[in-house]
C-alpha cells in the first residue's frame, strides 16, 4: 500500500515535470515567433495606407458627390468624420485619432477609432515600446454647401 502511494506520487511528479517541460519549449517557440514579427514591422506602410485611404478614397473621408458619384480627393466631407463611419471603414483596432482644424489651428471636429485604447496608450508614447505616428495635411473641408481650407491630422499609436 505504501509502495502504491509512492508510485502514485512519482507518476504525479512526472506529469508535472512533463507539463513544465512542454511549457518551457512552447515559451521558446513563442519567443521565436515574437522575434520574427518584430523583424517584420510594417507600421509605417500601414499608416501610409490609412492616410491615403482617408484623404483620397470615397470609402475614406473624401467627399463624394451624390449627384455625379465623383470623388474629390483631398476634400474632406465633415459628415464622414464620424466614429461609426470610421469604425466601419477600418476593422483593425489600431487606436487612431482624426482631427480637422481650420487655418488658424482651431479644432473643428475630432474623432477616434478605438478611443479607449488610444487614451490609454497615447500618454505612453514617450516609451520605446509605443510609437505615435502622425501626419498633418492641407485639405479642403466640405461642410454642407460650403468649402473652406483647413488641416487634417491623423495620429496612430502602435506598439512595437
Amino acid at each position: 500500500m505504501k509502495l502504491n502511494k509512492k508510485a502514485l506520487g512519482d507518476v504525479v511528479l512526472w506529469i508535472i515535470r512533463i507539463i513544465v517541460l512542454v511549457a518551457v519549449v512552447a515559451a521558446i517557440n513563442f519567443l521565436r515567433i515574437i522575434a520574427l514579427n518584430n523583424a517584420l514591422q510594417t507600421y509605417d506602410t500601414e499608416f501610409y495606407i490609412l492616410n491615403t485611404k482617408m484623404m483620397y478614397s470615397p470609402t475614406g473621408l473624401a467627399y463624394e458627390s451624390t449627384a455625379t458619384g465623383r470623388t474629390y480627393p483631398g476634400m474632406i466631407d465633415i459628415e464622414k468624420l464620424d466614429e461609426a463611419y470610421i469604425n466601419n471603414s477600418m476593422t483593425r483596432n489600431i487606436p487612431s485619432r482624426f482631427t480637422l482644424t481650420d487655418e488658424n489651428g482651431v479644432v473643428i471636429k475630432q474623432e477616434y477609432h478605438n478611443k479607449e485604447r488610444y487614451n490609454i496608450l497615447e500618454p505612453l508614447t514617450f516609451a520605446k515600446q509605443y510609437n505615435l505616428l502622425n501626419k498633418t495635411q492641407y485639405v479642403l473641408i466640405k461642410q454642407g454647401e460650403q468649402t473652406k481650407p483647413g488641416f487634417l491630422t491623423i495620429e496612430m499609436v502602435v506598439s512595437r
Binding site: I49, T52, K53, S57, P58, T59, P73
Partner: peptide
C-alpha cells in the same frame, strides 16, 4: 489587400 481597398 488594404491598399487595394484604398484605390478608387
Amino acid at each position: 489587400l488594404e491598399a487595394i481597398q484604398t484605390g478608387q
